[in-house]
Amino acid sequence: MKASLKTLIAGTALAVLATAGVAQAAWPERPVTIIVPAGAGGGTDGTARLLAKQLQDELKQPFNVVNNGQGGGIVGHTQIATARPDGYTLGIVYNYYQWKMLGQADINHTMFAPIAIYNVDPAALLVNVNSPFKTGKEAFDALKADASKYKIGCGGSCGGSWHIPNAELFIKYGIDPKKPVMVPSAGGALSNQDLASGGLDLAVGSLPEGKPLIEAGKLRPLYVVSSARQGAPFQDVPTAKEALGVDMEGGAFRLVAGPKGLPADIVSKLETTLEKIWKSEEFQNGMKQRNFGTKWLNSKDTVAFMQAHEASMTETMKALGLAK
């Protein structure tokens, strides 16, 4: 016992003796935390880590990704909004306005200092390979005839990133979006799996999330809600316009933001750095490798984008009867 205690003391004494200097410089002078309101290993996490690595290279300070996926992202978004606006806590913000509409949490653009949008993923509609629907039109005509017969997975919460653009398509095609049985889930992977198991007739979602099961020959994408076709391996998936004759874009977006009140010089420094990173081959290749769409909007345009998101959500959620 004595010997082990001595070792313990010797070790700790050494550690205490070690001292350290303190650096003084402009922002960032110490590590920056990037809050990701989603679990480690998911899509949001992946894109955030890609950005963090390059931010670290550019700004010579560690950018640490911290995951908080609780409450479907509400807790993480709140953490970003309520952090100290000193530039040492930033975060990734994604489709958030459904929480306000569902009466779960009041999260809106005024709580953030938006810096830039870097990614947009279009929504898609998927079916089991054994489904009678071979095209989007066949599915939509059947839904138009009697939508209440079909069970549709929401690829996450109903009223979320994937459901809303598809519901807008329903409305434009003349389908009552309130009629089908909409089935929520705790994430796109579970929804897709349920579709593959035969528990659902259709599922809204995205191509990257559905990729493993699509390639395994279990699921079939019918269309993607984008004005242009996606890159390989999804070059054969028709756009909403080709499949249904409705030209529309919609899906999930991801943007970098800080808490409201972030100093303007930090916002502009981040904006410039992020733009440089976004344009780099490393970032573009990294995104392409994982089938993430890329889109760039600067700070000012991002605010306008968020306002548009809130307006269109309000309208569609009301039409769906989901607004509380």
Binding site: A40, G41, G42, G46, E215
Partner: peptide, 25 residues
């Protein structure tokens, strides 16, 4: 299939993607 069997592999799938080993047959 890229479907996590537990909370550990849920994280692992992300790592597999990053390493260019996209889960799937």
């Amino acid at each position: 299939f890229g479907i996590p069997g537990d909370s550990i592999t849920a994280i692992v799938i992300g790592v597999l993607y990053m390493k260019g080993m996209q889960p799937g047959p």
